[in-house]
Design a protein around this nucleic acid. Structure first.
Lengths: 189, 189
DNA sequence: CACCGATGTTAGTGAATGTTAACATCGGTG
DNA sequence: CACCGATGTTAACATTCACTAACATCGGTG
């Protein structure tokens, strides 16, 4: 059973694992469950990952990298802070709507990642946050930075709650709603 | 070792359990952990609760009842919808700031509650949501109800994220910030 | 065609965990 | 003071779980 461009199997496993972790939490999913989700049985996964924690770490590192990179790219394309904020918002919203499982795992399971990678993920997350804070500081130079940070975390809470709401709205409608709400929340005083 | 107004022991256990469940998740806490948190060892808890799941169920039922009751009381005191919304916001924010562990458990662990109580909690949560929706519908009669519901869930995400943000702001400052942001998000268009 | 690397399988192992059982303590009550 | 209800203790049990070991399959390559 060879074949598939190298790395494909890994990606399939990571995606399935993210779905299960998002639905039942890291400790609520067994190795056997993870194997079954990709059509094999339990221990087969050790051919691809050192263990259950390594699997979670790989998921979180990938998400954090992606958010930080895309965030930097989007923010850099815009000259004025208002445009940069809109770009950051659109990017984050698209990610949350397209990858609900990844967003869920990303803000719930950091504590279950073992220490070497934990620090790395924290650094990436901090970098992402700093991009937002820099833009917000230019938009609201009068507001002290701790308040900006607190407001930003609250908006992340708003945006990342999408996967848990029933979803009676269509994708585009939801994206527009989240954009309007988040923008209003960040610029309100 | 008798004494203490009946029910006190129960309350102590529930509070400690909520703290642990919030920090490490239902499956990340053992009965032994829960016992140690109240100065006894593991199995002693079976004198007070039928099992680990019953403990979680008790926590969630209590929170849901409290939110629904206080919500109804606060909303009923205000005649106009704008005042009612402000009252609901202030109540929810106070709860989130005063009981971070309870809010966290409340919106993460429903799936681990066994079936008889699960339905009850869902009903209580639905009742709480309906109070908000009724107020919002009067404030924004032009907006279709599904959009109001989606916006409401997003605002809950915003408010309930408080326990997870570092908390560099003082309590009153944070309460004011959350109030301003949530209000702006709900009334934006 | 012999070999190998990638990928899988089943059986087993040791540790952790939820729960029950049997027994202890002790303050209040008749 | 005998008894009981509330509360706790330790030992034991069955189950689950992460992980390892030993062995199988098979496509591509020299």
């Amino acid at each position: 059973m060879a074949g598939q461009a190298a790395g494909t199997r890994r990606a399939v496993i990571l995606r399935a694992a993210a779905g299960l972790f998002a639905a039942r939490g890291f400790h609520g999913v067994s190795i056997e469950d993870l194997g079954r989700a990709v059509g094999t049985s339990g221990p087969a996964l050790y051919r691809h990952f050192a263990g259950k924690e390594a699997l979670l770490a790989a998921i979180l590192v990938e998400i954090s990298e992606r958010l930080a990179e895309e965030g930097a790219a989007r923010a850099a394309e815009e000259a004025d802070p208002a445009g940069a904020l809109d770009a950051l918002l659109r990017g984050h919203i698209a990610f949350a709507l397209d990858e609900p499982a990844l967003i869920t795992v990303h803000d719930r399971e950091l504590e279950n990642v073992p220490e070497p990678e934990r620090r790395r993920i924290r650094r990436l997350q901090r970098g992402y946050v700093e991009q937002w804070v820099a833009v917000l500081a230019r938009l609201r130079p009068d507001t002290p930075e701790p308040a900006l940070r607190a407001a930003l975390h609250a908006v992340f809470g708003l945006l990342n709650s999408t996967p848990h709401s029933a979803g009676e709205l269509g994708r585009e409608e939801m994206a527009g709603l989240l954009f309007t709400m988040a923008r209003a929340a960040l610029l309100a005083r």
